[in-house]
Structures are given as C-alpha cells and as structure tokens.
Design a protein around this nucleic acid. Structure first.
Lengths: 102, 102
DNA sequence: TTGTATTTTGACATAATTTGTCAAATTTAT
DNA sequence: ATAAATTTGACAAATTATGTCAAAATACAA
C-alpha cells in the first residue's frame, strides 16, 4: 500500500527519467517534484491528473492514492483517527445514497 | 449521525443560550459561531475542546465529529470518496500497528 | 580522484485560504 | 411594533500553500 509519492517515484524511475523532465511537464520546479515524491509536499489535483496522463496509468488509481494521502495526513496524529474515518465513511455512504433527493 | 454543527446547536439550544454567550466563552464573534453551527465554517481543534468543556460532554465524542466533518469535507465531491476513505483506513491501521517501531 | 548529472535542502517571495471583526439585514418571539 | 437573536457579506489580518532559486549533498562515470 504505497503512498502517492512512492508510486510516482517508482513510475519515474522505471522510465529512468530525471526529476527535471517530469517537473517540466508539470510546469513546476524539480525541487517541488522531489518533495512531492518524498511526501513533503502535496501535489494539486491537476498535477495528479497530469501525472496519470504522463505515465499512462489510470487516473482514478492515482487520485485515490492522492485523496487517501490527504485523509491520512489530516488524522494521523489524532487518537481517534480510525473512529473518525469510520464515521466519515458512514456519512459518505449516507450522502451518496441520498444524492439527487430534495 | 449528526454533523458537529448540528450537535453544537442542539447543545446550545437545549440550554437556551444565545450565540452571544457561547461565542464569548470561545472568544470569537457570534457570527462565526453561527456559521460553525450551520457548517459554513470549521471550528479549530481548540474551539471544539472548549465546547466540550463548556457543555460538559465527552471531548472525544466532539473531536470525532469534528475530524469526520473535515474528512467528509475533503472528499465529498470526489467520485472515489468511499474508496479513498477505505484506503486511508487501511493505512491508518497499518501505521498504528507499527507505532514505536524504527 | 575528479568531474558531471541528479537530487535534496532551505531561504525567500507570492498567492491563496483561513480566521476573525463589524455593521447591516433578516428572522424570531414578544 | 419592537426588541432580541441570528444571519449575511464586505473587509482585514494572519496563516498556510505553492513556487523559485541557488547552494549543498549525493550518485555516478571516467
């Protein structure tokens, strides 16, 4: 269960590309991509979409990793992290079930 | 499964207190408390702790509601919200299991 | 080693978001 | 009708996010 950063780094290293190249495609400085890969910065949604396109992987897979990264980040130093995630899950189920209604 | 705002409002209305009073205790303008209760603003962790103290309810209960509110907010307009929450849950389990290790 | 490409780090600037105040408008209850 | 409570939105200040840049560190060849 890799974090998004790990995933991106593996994708890039498999193609033996330097940070410079991928960063140029994203139109950001390579320093930022370096930090993203090591989890020190959070990429934007748009950047994740671009990366999926660039590496030809399923956009949704990368977006799930990106979103869950953010979720983990949000709760990680709280004791009731798990509980909160479970409650959130219930609420999301409820919300999507009632989508479209009044 | 109420949101944090709903919970706070109910607690306040049960005691028949005006926004003014509770807001003064939190040391913020009543306008903000009004927005917090209706979910238009997110309270800080410290404010939630103070509210638990003020209304004499379990701090953790309120904090779980607060955290899950933030989680729902983060994913709510994404298609893969549920998936992301589930992945985050796995990751949090993994992290807490290995807490203390190298 | 020495040199060269890559990556990492941190200081800094700027942009975006948060967090709050305030006063006016609206609603609720007398 | 009026008085209290609540809501709204414009605004300001503070905080956080996002990026650039150059120097330092690391990896890799020769």
């Amino acid at each position: 269960m890799d974090s998004l950063g790990d995933t991106i780094r593996k994708l890039r290293e498999n193609k033996e590309l330097p940070l410079r190249t991928v960063a140029a495609f994203l139109d950001i400085d390579q320093a930022i991509l370096s930090k993203i890969e090591r989890g020190q910065r959070k990429p934007s949604r748009e950047q994740v979409v671009k990366l999926a396109e660039y590496f030809k992987v399923k956009e949704n897979d990368l977006l799930v990793a990106w979103l869950s990264d953010k979720l983990v980040y949000e709760v990680e130093d709280e004791d009731m992290a798990l509980k909160a995630l479970q409650v959130a899950e219930e609420r999301v189920k409820y919300i999507t079930k009632n989508k479209g209604k009044k």
